[in-house]
Design a protein around this nucleic acid. Sequence first.
DNA 1: CTGAAAGCGCTAACAA
DNA 2: TTGTTAGCGCTTTCAG
Lengths: 339, 339
Amino acid sequence: MSKLTIKTLAKQLGLSIATVSKALKDSHEISAETKKKVMALANELNYVPNPYASSLRKQKSKTIAVILPEVADNFFSLAINGIQAVAATKHYHVLIYLSHESFEIEKNTVNHCLSGRVDGVLISVSSETSDAAHIEKLKNENIPFVFFDREFENFAAPKVITNDYECGYAAAKLLLKKGCKHPVFLSTSKDLSICSKRSAGFTAALTEEGFLKNQYEFVIDCTGTHEQIFDQIQDLLKNNPQIDGIVASVERLAMQIYMVSVANNISIPKDLKVVAFSTLETAPILNPSLTTITQPAFEIGKTAAEVLFTMIEKKKHNITADTVMVLPSALIERNSTLA
Amino acid sequence: MSKLTIKTLAKQLGLSIATVSKALKDSHEISAETKKKVMALANELNYVPNPYASSLRKQKSKTIAVILPEVADNFFSLAINGIQAVAATKHYHVLIYLSHESFEIEKNTVNHCLSGRVDGVLISVSSETSDAAHIEKLKNENIPFVFFDREFENFAAPKVITNDYECGYAAAKLLLKKGCKHPVFLSTSKDLSICSKRSAGFTAALTEEGFLKNQYEFVIDCTGTHEQIFDQIQDLLKNNPQIDGIVASVERLAMQIYMVSVANNISIPKDLKVVAFSTLETAPILNPSLTTITQPAFEIGKTAAEVLFTMIEKKKHNITADTVMVLPSALIERNSTLA
DNA sequence: CTGAAAGCGCTAACAA
DNA sequence: TTGTTAGCGCTTTCAG
């Protein structure tokens, strides 16, 4: 079958290409009758316009890019859901790019977004990202973009995030209230905005409650593969039996904490209380059920997309370079922090 | 800043557009010296070619579409991971479309793939899909596509799936071995290939063990929102206290079975044994740990993408219209089926 | 080795 | 109301 283009339609109808084009867009300068005929044939032949020809001509792609570290992750997949929900209503297409926490990959991907392939970018930065030059380029080229969740601090750009500092603070307070004498915060990257804010809140709560800055290491770094994380947590708990409370800065860490506790007969919450930043659906049916700080993942994605589209559509009413929207997370107490 | 095109480069270098184009592709008909100069300027100005101009001209997009019911789901997000992994090595772009289990949406999405926007399609059909006319169109237009996981039975096309029948059979056998007298299979859609095969295997095992066809309803349908599923399962168990074993055809159902058991003081595995088709990472740390039939989600995605690319690259060596690749799932026994 | 020219399919002035 | 024309930015013959 030869390609079905606007030309084919025009020829079959004895009309000009321009007329058909206008008719297809329901232009007011075309007679109702002609429109009807054009539409009828288009439907019959199942004509679908070539999007790239149109993109080239109009210099817009009806496509956005989502750049994020990982998709096999509850938070991010829910966020994608939110993004898709609004993209679908706008009839936009969504390209997904995974950085796998690699700065190099993220940089290249962002660079590709300079080509006109997309009308806008939603980005949640990798844990390795500590330099914003690549993002700066987007700004210089006037390509609308919005940070979601993992942002770049000290960089003026629209952002949709959650109240990380407060939640870190609340997590610490909860552990103390439940009787912890030696709580620690498990971070996953110093460069990550979410980790640094969460740990800052945690530390603030501790010092407020009389813990001394150099009493012990409040914040502990923990990265790598699942196995490496497992080993690090196991070593940590073996070498520091005084640790009686942990805040997991991300879901991944919480899972390994549970794994370690099973493997080492550490009883949660008796020996160790756990609270995790997590959107795990299974939190209520874990053994024991897990106290979480649950981020509004879907809403973060949805809101970020909405902000992006207002930028794309140039209705920048109230969106400025430093618009930051903060959607609150919810602390949900369950059995992993029972006193 | 005005758009940076090949024309800009040509002008600045005093070369023709054609020469620059060829130099950028490292064509052999261009002198090494010229290439060097062109590359240098391109790098300096951070030139990124307009992909749509190129797509239009070459009639290929370096883009594939992935159409699936849902992304906030362990299986599918892992599959996407696998797909992305191979797309990235091929320097292909990945458009994600969610059908949210709606046939209507799926049909429209597939239809859009006829426009030349993508060079190929990976699809896992919605639970409502029982008509393949939309897929037929892809075939007629010669657009390469591959089914993954949820296929369309009786439709000759490349497919990458898992051994659903065998696993349904194995699940039933396990429940019987563990002493169940009245096991049931929770399906989620009659139209879904995976459900019908899994339940067929389940039923086969039961009849083989002497259960009679009309002894009771072996397979029970269960669909809707989380809340609706919860209610259905709760009613089912209340009205049929003889049920002592359940196979959850999909992860979603397993979660609600646990929720119901918590809410109604049903003890797993004492009162009820559970095995679930699931890729849940948290299966080992649930209360109790969950016996799963774990699909090779990442590999299914990866393999499907590989098959698709061999088709796109026309190296159809061993890929034919009825190539079916079956990747085996693993039955992992845990405490939810303890005798 | 380099360049001129045609054209991918569509849109949008501008004419008729 | 319809048609003519000139591109969007790139690739690819074909000439030079």
